[in-house]
Amino acid sequence: MRARKLSNEKEQLVTEAKAIQIGVPKESMRDFIKEVMKMPGGEKILECIQCGSCAGGCPTIFAMDYSPMQIIKMINLGMKEKVLSSSTIWVCSLCYTCATRCPRNVDFPTLMMSLRNKAIRENLVNNCAKSNFHRYFFEVINKYGRMHVPELFVKLLDITNFNSLLRNVRLGLRLFKTGKLQLRAPKIETSWVSSMLEKTDQE
């Protein structure tokens, strides 16, 4: 039983490798490429010539599991799960250095935001902290119409990481001391928020 399962896995690997080798993307590959090309930022992915000028100047590449150019290559090979569960899409700091220099006009940071969205919807998120941040941020905005830092701060406090917790609490106190932390929630008319969300919430 176990042996058969192993050989099955092996077989699958072989067929996958073959599909890449002969350059005929499987149906699903093509689907993923097409899907990405429709996303904001994905329009030019087939233009990539893998020159590496994105990776060379990337300030956060040290914390990525795949470099920007590798992510593009993986998309072009249809490796959907690997791309969406990569840390790269969450580590990108959206500084637009790569997009500014890309000779083929690939808008990588915008693509990263689109892929984050996709990863959240497909439940393939690998980096909870960042995706949670997005969720909390959204919740706060949805509640007040503007940012309310203390609430976001409290939501974000990660009690499992003591050092970070300590630093963040200290940061909060520091801000509070200089009068930069407003505890009062912003007061604006927010009745429109829900109607707008309803209209713009796709899927």
Partner: peptide, 26 residues
């Protein structure tokens, strides 16, 4: 008067892109 969140670079945009654009557009 009565301005609201700009929609954020990525936080809301990655989560609900159209909503984020609408926030800015308001």
């Amino acid at each position: 008067p009565d301005w609201n969140c700009c929609g954020s670079i990525d936080a809301v945009y990655s989560f609900k892109p159209l909503y984020s654009i609408a926030l800015a557009a308001r």
